[in-house]
């Protein structure tokens, strides 16, 4: 029972990451009609926003260490500590959550520049061209990050207060044995909030209503005198923010390195396609579905019956769904089939 619950939590966690990336992908596809292979790179950029922010916070000054008297020893003291004392240390401790604030403007800028600078020219080109140009762009971003930060993963500890494990078992009355890392729980809650936020933005604001109308029929919305292109640019930036912030929050779980985007991209594409191209609900549902299926397949009991199933289960599910439901779980007819 315990292991099932743990796997369920693991699956939800993984699924949340897939769902957040897939949400942005499918949002961009539904509005702009662009298949964006650089979306994984945006996720990675978000994670590196967190790295940069921590680096900025911990900019240090060399100070002579008074405790060592035999020779002149120096230690690095962050400016924040010199200026603010313990408050400064606390700020550094909370670097990851704070870098969300830092990353949002950066991701908006990245999204805006990407859309206006490159992707705008590809609206009328075939999907194959879009895939290729964004794939090239992803390589460029990835290599720039590698040149700037090196190839090794850079661990980002979560704040001290949530670095331990939560006693999930006690809450549910299942005994002490069932524990789960705090930060992963936070990530789950955070993802739920993000997904809820995006959906309510699209559903309950006038702005979102116009965007949804544009997804259905871009031309008519344009004829009504609305500058739909402009709104779609903002949607692209929004998708970038969702992916980037997801990247920031994921850093304590997986130390960021330059190819984490590509690793997630392939799976997120499978998620989007399984959910149905251009369907937001489908992307979220498929994300959680595949995440849970994957973590259950990695249980030992199941691996004993089907060896190696954990390696291929996602793709297997994807193949079965695509062959039985041509447009994925919730896809619309006629999308992306030309």
């Amino acid at each position: 029972m315990d292991s099932i619950l743990i796997q369920l939590l693991n699956g939800l966690d993984k699924g949340a990451a897939y769902a957040l990336i897939a949400l942005g992908l499918t949002l961009v596809f539904g509005t702009l009609g662009i298949v964006n292979f650089a979306h994984g790179a945006i996720f990675m950029l978000g994670a590196f926003c967190a790295v940069t922010f921590r680096k900025l916070l911990t900019l240090s000054e060399k100070v002579q260490d008074p405790t060592v008297t035999l020779f002149a020893a120096y230690k690095e003291v962050p400016y924040l500590k010199i200026w603010f004392g313990d408050t400064g240390l606390m700020i550094i401790d909370y670097a990851v959550p704070l870098s969300i604030l830092f990353s949002i403007p950066i991701m908006i800028l990245v999204g805006y520049v990407m859309e206006r600078g490159l992707i705008r020219h590809f609206y009328k080109r075939p999907h194959a061209d879009q895939i290729l140009v964004t794939f090239g762009l992803a390589i460029v971003i990835q290599e720039l990050i590698k040149a700037a930060f090196g190839a090794n993963p850079i661990p980002q500890p979560p704040p001290d207060i949530v670095s331990g494990s939560a006693n999930v078992g006690l809450w549910l009355g299942l005994g002490e044995a069932l524990v789960y890392p705090w930060w992963r729980l936070m990530y789950l809650v955070f993802s739920a909030v993000m997904i809820f936020g995006v959906f309510s933005f699209l559903k309950y604001t006038t702005y979102g209503m116009v965007v949804r109308a544009g997804m259905w029929d871009r031309e008519t919305v344009g004829l009504l005198g609305i500058n739909i292109e402009r709104r779609f640019t903002i949607v692209f930036a929004l998708a970038a923010v969702v992916a980037g912030v997801a990247g920031v929050m994921y850093t304590p779980i997986l130390p960021p390195d330059y190819h984490m985007g590509m690793d997630f991209l392939v799976l997120s594409f499978v998620v989007v396609v399984v959910g149905g191209m251009g369907s937001l609900g489908g992307a979220v549902a498929a994300g959680f579905l595949l995440g849970i299926v994957q973590s259950f397949a990695s249980m030992n009991e199941i691996k004993d019956i089907f060896p190696g199933i954990d390696q291929i289960i996602i793709y297997l599910v994807a193949v079965v769904i695509l062959l039985t439901r041509p447009r994925g779980l919730m896809g619309r007819a006629g999308v992306m089939e030309d």
């Binding site: 298949v35 999907h127 895939i131 392939v266 594409f269 499978v270 396609v273 191209m277 390696q311 291929i312 793709y315 297997l316 994807a318 193949v319 695509l322 062959l323 041509p326 447009r327 994925g328 992306m336 089939e337 030309d338």
Partner: peptide, 14 residues
């Protein structure tokens, strides 16, 4: 279309 691309990708990854 893209469904074909993803299917081939899925088989190759498997």
């Amino acid at each position: 279309g893209i469904y074909f691309s993803i299917l081939t990708l899925a088989f190759a990854q498997m």
